[in-house]
Amino acid sequence: MNLEDLRVFKEVAKEGNITKTAENLNFGQSNVTAKMKRLEQFYGNKLFYRHRHGVTLTSPGKILLSYAEQVLLLMDEAEKTLKSTDFPSGTLSIGSMETTIATRLPTILSTYHEQCPQVELSFRTGTTEDLIKAALNREIDGAFVAGEINHPELMELEVFEEELVIIAKKSILSDLNFDQLKNLTMIVFESGCFYRDIFEKWLKSKGITPSKLMELNTLDGLIGCVKAGLGISLLTKSAAEHLHQDENIKQFALPNEYAKVSTKFIYHKDIAKTCAFSEFIRVLGFLDASAEIEKIHGV
């Protein structure tokens, strides 16, 4: 049994198909099959049920998958930490909400790339809920999320404050008349989006339960639907400013208790704090935080 066998096992479990796994990993199908048989012999248990659609984990297989994910995660973090140098290099995986990556991150990422050109950046967009889960599972090094987090396993740094506004085509909404709002389609990001939660709470406070929702997963798609007059939406003012040249789109301010939301950078307390990670914290403007990371982890 070796780490490569576990990595292949994890991929087979994810795909539920040996042929697909072989294609993904650029292995021969017989090679993948041999690795799975070797694992079954090593542990003395059948790990997969074979059927005409592929394979399904047995109970022992599910147990092994849980341990394999932990082992592979720890080995990846060990490699990151031990191969870390005094100069930022390697990889850095960052998660972000759609609105943040579109409006706030370009300047930050440009500065970081200029200072750390040898770091390979990767990005993952999602809702605040999805990104918190990814950070907790250490699938990413850190993420930009909205609102209060307060999780014992996560560190959080407040990066900036956003103002939220309602946007709509003038022809369908002239003011925040709640009789009008009741009959309009609410254009929102998928469930788990913090801004969507704020939108729905504000409407509920006015006795409105949206009867028509249009769910989208991209900022461009959401803006496009608003411009087409398909409904109204709630966005950060920084994102809504992208529409300032469109005279047909109007912004409406929310009451103060709903208007202000903080954006935070979160990361797992036990994530590998590499030199690349510490430099990213510095670029965000948290010199004290990055110095403390270096002190604790010897980066």
Rank of each mutant, 00 (worst) to 15 (best):
residue 2 N to T: 15
residue 3 L to N: 04
residue 5 D to V: 05
residue 6 L to P: 00
residue 7 R to D: 05
residue 12 V to M: 01
residue 29 Q to T: 13
residue 37 K to G: 02
residue 39 L to A: 08
residue 48 F to E: 08
residue 48 F to Y: 14
residue 62 K to F: 01
residue 68 A to R: 07
residue 70 Q to L: 08
residue 75 M to N: 09
residue 78 A to P: 00
residue 82 L to C: 06
residue 87 F to P: 04
residue 90 G to E: 12
residue 100 T to K: 03
residue 103 T to P: 06
residue 111 T to R: 14
residue 114 E to P: 01
residue 114 E to V: 10
residue 118 Q to V: 09
residue 120 E to W: 00
residue 123 F to L: 11
residue 128 T to K: 12
residue 129 E to G: 00
residue 131 L to D: 03
residue 137 N to G: 01
residue 157 L to P: 14
residue 160 F to I: 07
residue 163 E to T: 14
residue 164 L to R: 10
residue 167 I to H: 04
residue 167 I to V: 14
residue 180 Q to M: 10
residue 190 E to Q: 11
residue 198 I to T: 08
residue 201 K to P: 10
residue 207 G to C: 02
residue 212 K to A: 08
residue 217 N to V: 09
residue 224 G to F: 02
residue 224 G to W: 00
residue 225 C to G: 00
residue 226 V to G: 03
residue 228 A to T: 11
residue 234 L to H: 01
residue 250 K to I: 14
residue 251 Q to R: 13
residue 252 F to N: 05
residue 255 P to W: 14
residue 257 E to T: 14
residue 264 K to S: 13
residue 269 K to V: 15
residue 276 A to D: 06
residue 279 E to N: 12
residue 282 R to V: 03
residue 285 G to Q: 02
residue 288 D to I: 10
residue 291 A to T: 03
residue 291 A to C: 03
residue 292 E to H: 02
residue 296 I to R: 15
